[in-house]
Design a protein around this nucleic acid. Structure first.
Lengths: 341, 341
DNA sequence: AGCGCCAATGTAACCGGTTGCATTGAGGAC
DNA sequence: GTCCTCAATGCAACCGGTTACATTGGCGCT
């Protein structure tokens, strides 16, 4: 593999000149530059980025640390990030924290010297834990995490407001007894959605303790919840799952015992994954533009890298929008009793 | 940021000793090592990987160059790769080639000095173009690409055989007039699937020129194909789309004009994306274990990095398995005329 | 006591770039 | 013709690690 010295020798100049010619800095004659470029071509030279990052103190690479993510979510975020990063000539170094604080620390540490900045999405981590593991000297933007206490810029989805909007919509459609299927306990998105639901129920419908079933964002959890609803003979006329996957699982669970959506009860989800459009009937859900999450965060990081100082105050909050499909069509008042036999 | 010299000074030893202690090499007394480790803790030292990769001539990073990929496919591949890479303590550097040879060259070049090996998936590139752009000195494994002419190890899906199997199954289910919706012209997977279909039709059904409609793997293309089928009044009793997304699009297109699957005709796809299970009725398709594609390739790359020499002969071919769901339930013989009115 | 041996440690030369400063030399002003 | 200026180029010292080789000193041996 050719080095800069090789190129310099081939072109008959010094390494300094070769370096300057290659990097397009001033103070190089046209013929000299041409000679260097010819040598570059001939030797098929590509600068060694490790060496370059050593002196330049930058690597043109950003670290992306994500939890274990499901299909669509993961790729959309990456796509959004890549779009902006690619434009800026930056590379993406992937790190997975597999949910644990320990792994997060390892991921962050292993990126030192490798990246100019970090994009981190730590849904299961406590702020203190996160603070311990992040390097304050490394520009960092948080994804989907309210970092007020850390004073880091972040991009988040307004889960609280989204859940409120959905609850409001279900009530407006005539639902009286809404059950919420929650997400993982330590997941912030899940908690915010649950809170939005609970508060909307209290304020709008005057119900202080609506039924909340446990879940973990998996399809199976939705099916389990459906069984619970049926066996418990709960007087339910609508189910609001904390994400689409559970909503779909729930619909399937209900179908198992002959209950049909929206005839017997309404079902709604959150996220608007592609699947939501394709189940029949279409799933009513809160649409989150996931790629925007990634691209917005990357843009913030670029500003940080340019030297701007951005704190938590500069956060961007993306508001999900309601997408009403077939699963929440207002049901006939006559059926108002819910599914209790 | 603390450097090795800082650590050495703090521990009262030389940089060489510090380096040896940190890397766990022999010839260091227990107390010395302890002192160094204490200094590391105190100064919060993490070795600068750029510098390290300069001397070690390795970066513990592999480059992953993929085309623009759809949701599930992308994340499953990455998940598979990450699983194995993480285990081996390696990092993933992402590069997107956005389909063009030029971008591919740029992606490969920009990774020089950054990665120890490459995982490349170039569905739209010709072998020559690929050969030009790859660095023979860099261990490389190809994903889903038959690299016989390049003599590189690869992991591929037997698209030809998969398509053959599906065609065979459709015929066995009573179909006589099968239409194929093809994928992008320059896409190898698409071409192999089309070939498998065409040859199965010729050999099994004795049909030399079955109808093949153009497509591009998008849902919209499937819907377009459906319109073509209806308007052209083709005597069709089964549609075999080159991927699931087009199959779903096709079903929706047929539904628009009141045609129902599988009552009026059968529809099958390829890939078994999660969506396939959830459309109603479930989509019959060829299941490809995408994560296996990634993990197998990564394992091959690790072997390459360990110094083994692997050529094209060491390729792994993953055979898709048939998953029969509702869209190809054998239809009543009485309806055998297909959809022509 | 004197010697040699070997493990522990230190010194310094790399790796492949970038860049501050010194050097060169051509062109202009006198 | 001489001197000065300034652009072009070269020299060499970094960046932060690794590692070949030199050095040290404790120990067992005669």
């Amino acid at each position: 593999m050719a080095t800069l010295r090789d190129v310099a020798r081939e072109a008959g100049v010094s390494v300094a000149t070769a370096s300057r010619a290659i990097n397009g800095l001033g103070n190089v004659t046209a013929p000299t530059r041409a000679a260097v470029m010819a040598a570059v071509k001939k030797l098929n030279f590509v600068p060694h980025s490790g060496a370059r990052s050593l002196t330049r103190r930058k690597s043109d690479t950003v670290g992306v640390i994500l939890p274990d993510l499901f299909g669509e979510f993961f790729s959309e975020i990456i796509r959004g990030i890549d779009l902006v990063a690619h434009e800026a000539g930056m590379h993406l170094l992937l790190g997975n924290m597999h949910g644990s604080a320990h792994e997060t620390a390892a991921a962050v540490a292993s990126m030192r010297g490798r990246v100019d900045g970090l994009l981190v999405m730590p849904p299961e981590l406590k702020p203190e834990t996160l603070a311990e593991n992040l390097d304050p000297a490394l520009p960092t933007v948080l994804l989907n995490y309210d970092a007020a206490t850390l004073d880091l810029p972040y991009v988040a989805v307004d889960n609280y407001r989204g859940a409120w909007t959905m609850t409001e919509a279900l009530l407006a459609n005539g639902a009286r007894h809404i059950v919420h299927i929650a997400g993982p306990k330590h997941n912030r998105d899940a908690r915010d959605r649950q809170r939005g639901f609970a508060e909307a129920m209290a304020r709008i419908a005057g119900q202080r303790s609506p039924v909340i079933l446990p879940g973990d964002f998996s399809e199976e959890a939705g099916t389990q919840a459906a069984r619970l609803i049926v066996e418990g003979q709960l007087p339910v006329d609508a189910v609001f799952a904390a994400n689409d996957l559970m909503a779909v699982g729930c619909i399937m669970g209900l179908a198992e015992v002959g209950l049909s959506v929206p005839r017997d009860l309404m079902v709604a989800g959150f996220d608007d994954i592609p699947l939501a459009r394709h189940v029949t009937p279409g799933l009513t859900t809160m649409q989150v533009k996931i790629d925007r999450l990634g691209s917005t965060a990357m843009m913030k990081l670029l500003r940080l890298l340019r030297g701007e100082t951005l704190g938590a105050a500069s956060a961007t909050i993306l508001t999900p929008t309601l997408v009403e499909r077939g699963t929440t069509t207002r049901h006939v008042p006559a059926a108002a009793g819910g599914i209790s036999p």
